[in-house]
Each structure stands twice: as C-alpha cells, then as structure tokens.
C-alpha cells in the first residue's frame, strides 16, 4: 500500500480586490493533482515559480487546507482528522524548508530547536535521554554533538540546513516533504546535503516528496517525477525515463534549458518564448499553449487530460501519441 495517496487535490485561493475586499476570482494554485508515494520512495516535484509546487507540498501536510480532494497517509484520510489527531499524526510526516536562515528560531539553541519536537510528541524521556537523543541526531546529520548549545547564527547555511534536517528526523517520520532544501546553499555545499538526504533515506527507509526547480538534483535523488505547470501535473513517470525522453513539450523545453557544464554534451536548446502566465488569469484550454512551440488550434479550447501515454508514463498533451 502507498504511504501517501493524493487524489484530485485542489487548492484554490480567493483573489480579493477593492475597498471591501470582494472576492473577484480564484487562483487555482493546485488543480486536480493525484499521485502516490510509496514507503521509502523519493518522488520529485519540479516546476517553475508560481506553478503551485510549494502549495501542493504544504497542502499534503495540511499546513494549508485543501479546497477539495483527498490526502491519505497509511490509508487514513488526514482531511477528516481533528486538530489534536492531526498533531499526533504529524509525527509521521515532517518538512524541510528552503531558507535555512528563516526557518530556525534565532533565539533558541540547537538543543531547544531539536528538543522541542521531542517534547511536543512526548519522546523526550528523562533529561539525560533527551540530551543523548539530541547529540545522536546531530551526529547523524554530520554535526558535532557539542554544537547543541549554540545558536543558529553561529552556523553556515549548509550547517543550518543540517540542523533543519535533524529537527525533522527527531520524531522519526516516515515521509519528509523537502521544499527546495539545497537551492539556498553554495554549489560546493549542495552536494553534501544531497548526499546526506540520500544516506538517510537508505538508512531509515524514509520517503521524500522532493520539491525543486532543479531537475538535475531531482534526477539524482528521486525515482519518480511529477512536472507541474500552472497548478497542473503535465507529465509524470520514472525520472530517468522522463529525463532521457520527455514527452510533454513543456518538459522537453525545461530539460533543454538546464545549464550543462560539459561542453561536449550540449543539448539542442528549446528556448520558450514569453513568460509564465499569471495564475490569476490562466490561458484557456491547455495552460501551456501560449508558450508551446507545437500548439494547435484545439489546444486553445480543450484542456488536455493527464493520460497514460506509455506504460508508467503520463502526460497531459493532445499531441503526444
């Protein structure tokens, strides 16, 4: 059974305008998204800014209330839980944030930051046990146990991200939603954190929902991939297969736009014209048709459904055979 099941999830935000903040429209940040994450599986979620990937990640953890749809964890619909029940279940799913500077309380020591999670879920035990557990967690993410009494400002970006990971691991979750966990880090430090996430996944059979704009990182770390554009999943499947032979025109352009270091493996670049449309006024029909190099007349009218185009590969495009 899947660890996480998301069915027809929608998150719509009202657009308020004018003196009395009347609702004049809706932003469909997440529009009818379905997927599953198995135990110990890493699923990547890529897309550009405003595509709804962060909103989706938060709605999965019910940090944002979904408008409709079902999110089930171990078969249990978490949309139906009361606040108290939800808090208890949250032990099993945690989050790592993008900004290692803004996501740690500057007035708390590392020991308090990690210990708070233990206290909330009643996992602390005696004082000695709590201290021992915190030192163990720090060691597990590659930090010196002596750092427990320091404050966040004493650490570099990469070290802070390790503290954030230790905090998430403290309650022994089954799933971690990682929202751009390495994009704020220096290039030479990113690999350390990626390797750490990979090791932890193997040691603890952790599942990840890995949100990123960086396809190369996702390809390295994940087994399956969802590509989002304006709130919808446009392509889904095995990550290696998608990177080798993307089917949706947006995925093709996205992969071709990723900068390549090796001058001998330069790809033919598909440069998309135009900008990402505003999600407040999404285009009619296929949301990608305004930038699509192969769009036809019907793409402006009919919304393409996400369908299985080859075994295990899904794409939302009229033109994919």
């Amino acid at each position: 059974m899947a660890l996480l099941e998301v069915e027809n999830l929608r998150v719509h935000f009202p657009v308020k305008q004018g003196l009395f903040a009347r609702t004049t429209g809706q932003v469909k940040a997440v529009d009818n998204v379905s997927f599953t994450v198995g135990p110990g599986e890493a699923v990547g979620l890529v897309g550009e800014s405003g595509c709804g990937k962060t909103t989706l990640g938060r709605a999965v953890l019910r940090l944002i209330e979904p408008t409709s749809g079902r999110v089930a964890f171990n078969g249990e619909d978490i949309g139906k839980l009361s606040a108290t029940e939800l808090r208890a279940r949250r032990r099993q799913f945690q989050m790592i944030f993008q900004d290692p500077f803004g996501s740690l309380n500057p007035r708390m020591t590392v020991s308090d930051i990690i210990g708070e999670a233990l206290d909330i879920h009643g996992l602390a035990g005696t004082r000695e046990e709590r201290g021992h557990r915190i030192r163990q967690l720090l060691h597990g993410v590659g930090l010196e146990p002596e750092y427990a009494l320091r404050y966040p400002h004493e650490f570099s970006g990469g070290q802070r991200q390790r503290i954030g990971i230790a905090r998430a691991l403290a309650v022994e979750p089954k799933l971690i939603v990682c929202d751009e966990p390495v994009s704020a880090l220096d290039v030479s430090v990113q690999a350390q954190v990626i390797n750490l996430l990979q090791d932890l996944q193997q040691e603890r059979t952790l599942a990840y929902l890995f949100i990123s704009h960086d396809l190369a990182v996702v390809e390295h770390l994940c087994r399956r991939l969802l590509v989002m554009y304006l709130g919808r999943v446009v392509e889904a499947g095995e990550v290696k297969g998608i990177c080798r032979a993307p089917r949706h025109p947006y995925t093709q352009a996205l992969i071709s736009a990723v900068p390549v270091v090796d001058p001998d493996s330069k790809r033919q670049r598909i440069v998309l014209s135009g900008d990402i449309p505003s999600p407040i006024h999404p285009p009619s029909g296929c949301p990608f048709h305004t930038r699509c190099p192969v769009a036809e007349a019907r793409c402006k009218i009919e919304v393409p459904a996400l369908r299985e185009v080859s075994p295990g590969r899904w794409a939302a495009c009229h033109l994919v055979e």
Partner: peptide
C-alpha cells in the same frame, strides 16, 4: 560535485 541530467552517478562527490 554538481549533478547533471543523464549522467548516471550513485553518489555525488561533495
């Protein structure tokens, strides 16, 4: 240390 699409690697050299 940078991952690249299409380059098969078990582990990044950090």
């Amino acid at each position: 240390s940078v991952p690249e699409i299409g380059r098969e690697r078990k582990r990044l050299q950090a």
